[in-house]
């Protein structure tokens, strides 16, 4: 049994002259939840689609679930659950009919039992005759998750599963994902939410088609080498854009009434803060947040692209 659920190297994909995924190599251990982060259009969705066989890579090799991912796409599909960004069950079919369809298309045994169990587990049994289109956003996501995992896949790919879902529903959704992962399911999930990223075991950060950072949240923060100060005081948030342009400051952004200012060296950052070290402002050094790290990664990559 392979310890790695995903182990692919040198993944490339172009659409016309747009090189969307560049030399992405990614390894994911079985039973881990890996979060894919990165700005819109950075190649997260494309990478997920490549992994589940919805797109054919231009190049790349490796294994998914221990199978050659280019040659055994069909076998991998059978053991993979994929949940799309947009709700993509049939809105004009009932919950029960949707699940029954998924069960059938996967050729599952004891269909009725599975569907009923799932409906009970979701707490939707009483609403099984409702049309899926009538569900609220949060329930739709839970139904889609149930549909994607109905055939007991070993790998689950989730593409921004909680976009537009309220915080409570998001929390329940993530609790469910952790339950599934505890049973050995490997999960790859793309997201824009930092709190969700922090609930992942591992994080991969994709930018302009490249996987530029990989590891646990703590490791990413530690390896970033960032020094971050938190500034508080009336009106400090309005100083954010001035601070951002100061030498030695990589990023400065407002968080409510406070501001996070990050830099790579303590000396340069301290120097930049001198004009602001006065009443009524208070400064304290804090651990950089994941968001600080990502903003820094984005900025660094952009600089490299423009200078190279």
């Amino acid at each position: 049994m392979n310890e790695r659920a995903i182990d692919v190297r040198g993944l490339n994909k172009s659409f016309g002259d747009r090189h969307v995924v560049r030399d992405v190599s990614i390894a994911v251990d079985t039973g881990r939840i890996t979060g894919f982060l990165g700005p819109n259009g950075s190649g997260k969705t494309t990478t997920l689609r490549l992994l589940c066989g919805l797109l054919t890579p231009d190049s790349g090799e490796g294994t998914v679930l221990g199978l050659d991912f280019r040659a055994r796409g069909d076998a991998i599909k059978r053991q993979t659950g994929y949940m799309t960004q947009k709700f993509s069950l049939y809105e004009d079919m009932t919950l029960e009919e949707n699940l029954a369809f998924v069960a059938r298309v996967h050729g599952l045994e004891q269909r009725r039992e599975r569907v009923e169990d799932t409906l009970h587990r979701l707490g939707l049994f009483d609403r099984r005759r409702q049309l899926a289109g009538a569900l609220s956003g949060g329930w739709k996501q839970r139904l889609a998750l149930a549909a994607a995992t109905l055939h007991s896949p070993r790998l689950l790919l989730l593409d921004e599963p909680t976009a537009g879902v309220d915080p409570k529903a998001r929390r329940e959704f993530w609790d469910e994902i952790h339950t599934l992962a505890a049973d050995g399911l490997t999960v790859l999930v793309s997201t824009h939410y930092m709190d969700e990223a922090e609930r992942c075991h591992d994080i991969g950060y994709i930018l302009y088609g490249r996987l530029i950072a990989r590891g646990t949240a703590d490791a990413l923060i530690r390896d970033s080498g960032l020094v971050t100060f938190l500034g508080e005081g009336p009106g400090i948030d309005r100083a954010a854009h001035l601070l951002a342009q100061a030498d030695g400051v990589l990023s400065a952004s407002a968080f409510g009434a406070a501001v996070h200012v990050s830099g790579l060296t303590r000396e340069a950052l301290e120097a930049a803060l001198v004009p602001w070290r006065k009443e009524p402002y208070r400064w304290s050094e804090v651990t950089p947040s994941l968001e600080d790290v990502f903003i820094q990664l984005m900025g660094r990559e952009r600089d490299e692209r423009y200078t190279s």
Partner: peptide
């Protein structure tokens, strides 16, 4: 149009 094709294609069909 509705995006269900993506789900359909991710099944073994």
């Amino acid at each position: 149009e509705r995006g269900t094709m993506e789900t359909l294609l991710s099944t073994p069909a």
